[in-house]
Amino acid sequence: MPAKEKDGLAVIVVGLDGSTPAKNASAWAAGMARREKARLVLVYVEPLLAPGGWAGVGAETAGETTVSIMVEMRLDAARYLDPVGVKWSVVHHRGDPARGLEAIAAEFEADCVVVGRSRAGGGKLGSVPKTLIADAKRPVVVVP
């Protein structure tokens, strides 16, 4: 990708997993992308299941679920982002969510990563935001 041509944010990566905090994060990121005239990269990181976990779900069913999630993400992006002029991309990645978000952010040369706050019990940050913050290569915004 070419060097940045503008001051401010050019690319914002946001992690989505269907949770309420992730939806809040995507709304915050979309508003920021609109104000900054930045590209918004919506990322679904599909966690890898151990083969033993396939028995209950089935590999084919898990794949169908991922396709369904990606279709819904694209439809929602078109519905909410196109009318306000936000440029967007939807990306699917498989693996560890924190490492996947960072890998996509590096690929798109993102200026920041936005995630929802996940709870690990006792009010502590969940593992994805905690890992992103600990290993940050760029600013990380955690939205409640």
Rank of each mutant, 00 (worst) to 15 (best):
A30C: 10
A30Q: 06
M32S: 07
M32T: 12
M32Y: 02
A33Q: 04
R34C: 09
R34M: 14
E36T: 06
K37W: 04
K37Q: 14
A38C: 04
A38D: 03
A38F: 02
A38T: 03
R39N: 10
R39D: 08
R39K: 15
V41E: 03
L42M: 15
V43H: 01
Y44S: 02
Y44N: 10
Y44A: 04
E46N: 12
P47Q: 07
P47T: 11
L48V: 15
L48C: 08
L48H: 09
A50F: 12
P51Q: 07
G52M: 12
G52V: 15
G52S: 15
G53M: 15
G53H: 11
G53V: 05
W54Y: 15
W54M: 14
W54K: 01
A55S: 11
A55M: 13
V57N: 05
G58R: 04
G58W: 02
E60N: 10
A62S: 13
G63C: 03
G63N: 11
E64H: 13
T66P: 05
V67R: 15
I69P: 00
I69Y: 09
I69F: 03
M70F: 06
E72M: 11
E72N: 12
M73Y: 09
L75H: 14
L75Y: 10
L81F: 12
D82N: 14
P83L: 07
V84Y: 06
G85V: 11
G85S: 07
K87F: 03
W88R: 13
V90Y: 01
V91K: 13
V91E: 07
V91L: 05
H92Y: 08
H93R: 15
G95C: 06
G95K: 06
G95N: 10
D96I: 02
P97F: 00
R99F: 04
R99N: 09
G100T: 00
G100M: 01
L101C: 06
L101W: 00
A103L: 07
I104G: 00
A105S: 09
A105E: 04
E107D: 13
E107Q: 14
E107P: 01
E107V: 01
F108T: 09
E109V: 07
E109F: 06
E109L: 08
A110R: 06
A110C: 08
A110P: 03
D111S: 10
V113H: 01
V115F: 04
V115N: 01
G116T: 06
G116H: 05
G116D: 05
R117W: 03
R119N: 13
R119K: 12
A120E: 09
G121H: 07
G122E: 11
G123Y: 09
K124R: 13
G126C: 07
G126K: 04
G126S: 07
G126N: 06
P129K: 00
P129E: 07
K130N: 14
K130D: 14
T131A: 15
T131H: 08
L132Q: 05
I133P: 00
A134Q: 13
A136G: 04
K137G: 10
R138K: 14
R138V: 06
V140D: 03
V141N: 02
